[in-house]
Design a protein around this nucleic acid. Structure first.
Lengths: 207, 207
DNA sequence: CTCGGCGTCCCCCGGAAGGTAGAGGCCGGG
DNA sequence: CCCGGCCTCTACCTTCCGGGGGACGCCGAG
C-alpha cells in the first residue's frame, strides 16, 4: 500500500475537528497529522507538517480562510487546499478558488462526498460540489462590485446614512450617493435596505 | 457502574454528528443511541428511544430547534434537551430556554464543556454557558418587539417599502409607518437599514 | 495613443422615509 | 371595572433617498 494521505485540519469548532478526524482516521488511506483552531495556527501547522491536503474552514478567528489560502500558496504554490464551509452563496468561496484552492465543500455534505473530495484534492484533481459549481456560473453573469463600492456597501449595511458614509470615507455626500446608486443598479435593488439583503444573500458582506 | 446516559443527537451536518458521537462514545458514562439529520427525524427518534438527553441544533431543515423543543416537551415534559448552535445573540435561544430546554451551548465550546453540559442536563440540572447567561441578562433590559412588529421587521429586512409592507399585511401605509417607527425606537436605530442590522445581530430575524 | 473603467464631483426633482402628535377599538390583568 | 398595552388609523412637515442626467482626471489594456 502507498503511504497515507496526510491531512491537516483547520476549523474553529472542536466538534467539527473531531468529526472530521474520526471520519478520516477511520479510512485506511488517510490520516490526520495536525489540527488547528484558528487561521494563524493553520498556517504554522501547514509549514511544520507540509501535509498532502489541508482542509480549511472559511470562517475562523485571527485569520479567515481567504488569508490562509493566500499565505499557504505563497509558501507552497502546489499546496492542495480543500475549503469547507457552512454557507453557500458566499463570495469568499470564489476568492479562494480563484486564488488556487483546489476544492470546495459544504459542511452539510455527506461523509462519502467529503472523503472523495479529500482524495481528489490529494491527487491534485480539483473538486467542486455541484451546487457550488452552479452558483459559480450564476455569478459569472452578474456584475461585480468595485472595491470602493464594497467599502460603501459595508457602511450601508451598518445602517449609515449617505452623509455619514461620506464623512467616514472622506468623500462628498454626492459621491457617496453615486456609489450607492451604482450598488443598487448592480445588485438590482430598489432601496438600500434591499441591497443589503441581496448582498448578504450573495455573501458580499458579513454582518 | 450506573447505566450509561443515553443520548440522541440532532444536527444537519454529518460531520458535527460524527464529532459529537465520537466524543460521547469515548466516555465511559454515556452513549449515542440515535442520530437525526433534521427536525422531524429528531422528534421521531426521541419518541422511539426516549433518551436521557437530547442534543439539538437550532438550525435544521424541516423543523427548527424551537419547534422540536416544543413538540418534544409536549410529549414528555421532563425531557432533558441541550441546545447547541453556532450563533450567539440569537433570539431563538431564549425562546427555547423559556420553553423548557435545560441547557444551551455554542458549537465552538471546548470538548470538556460539551461533555459536562451533557452530564449536567442528564441530571436535570440546567446548564448555560456563561457567555449566553450574560446575553440573557442584557436582553432582559431591552424592550421586546410585539408579534406585529416582528412581522413588519421581517418585511423591512427584505427591503420592502412601507407601501409594499402595508399591502402585504393588509393595513394602511400609515400603520406600517407606525410599526416601523416603534421598531426604530425599540431597537434604538436611526434608519430602517440600521434597524435590520441591529435585529440581525440580536437574532430577531434570519436572513 | 485611445478607449474604457473607476473614483470623484455636480445638478435637479419627485417620492419615500422618519419625526411629531394625536385618537379609537379591543383585550387581558389588576 | 378601569387601566394599559397593542393594533389600527390620521395629518403635517422635514429630511433623506433614489433616478436621471453630465463632467473631470487617472490609469491600465489594447
Amino acid at each position: 500500500m502507498k503511504t497515507k494521505i496526510r491531512v491537516v485540519l483547520a476549523d474553529d469548532h472542536p466538534v467539527v475537528r473531531d468529526g472530521l478526524a474520526a471520519m478520516i482516521n477511520q479510512q485506511a488511506d488517510m490520516e490526520v497529522v495536525a489540527e488547528a483552531g484558528d487561521g494563524e495556527a493553520a498556517i504554522t501547522l501547514y509549514e511544520q507538517h507540509r501535509p498532502d491536503v489541508m482542509v480549511l474552514d472559511l470562517r475562523m478567528p485571527k485569520r479567515d480562510g481567504v488569508a490562509v489560502v493566500q499565505r499557504v500558496l505563497e509558501v507552497n504554490p502546489k499546496a492542495c487546499i480543500l475549503i469547507m464551509t457552512t454557507y453557500d452563496g458566499d463570495e469568499d468561496i470564489f476568492q479562494c478558488l480563484s486564488q488556487g484552492a483546489k476544492g470546495y465543500l459544504l459542511k452539510d455534505a455527506p461523509r462519502q462526498e467529503i472523503l472523495s473530495a479529500i482524495r481528489a484534492v490529494s491527487e491534485d484533481r480539483p473538486y467542486t460540489s455541484s451546487t457550488v459549481a452552479a452558483k459559480a456560473l450564476q455569478r459569472m453573469a452578474k456584475p461585480s462590485l468595485t472595491q470602493r463600492e464594497l467599502d460603501v456597501l459595508q457602511l450601508v449595511a451598518q445602517g449609515r446614512s449617505n452623509k455619514d458614509i461620506a464623512r467616514r470615507l472622506s468623500i462628498t455626500e454626492g459621491t457617496a450617493k453615486t456609489h450607492v446608486k451604482a450598488i443598487l443598479t448592480k445588485l438590482d435593488a430598489i432601496s438600500r435596505t434591499e441591497a443589503v439583503a441581496v448582498a448578504h444573500r450573495r455573501g458580499l458582506i458579513h454582518l
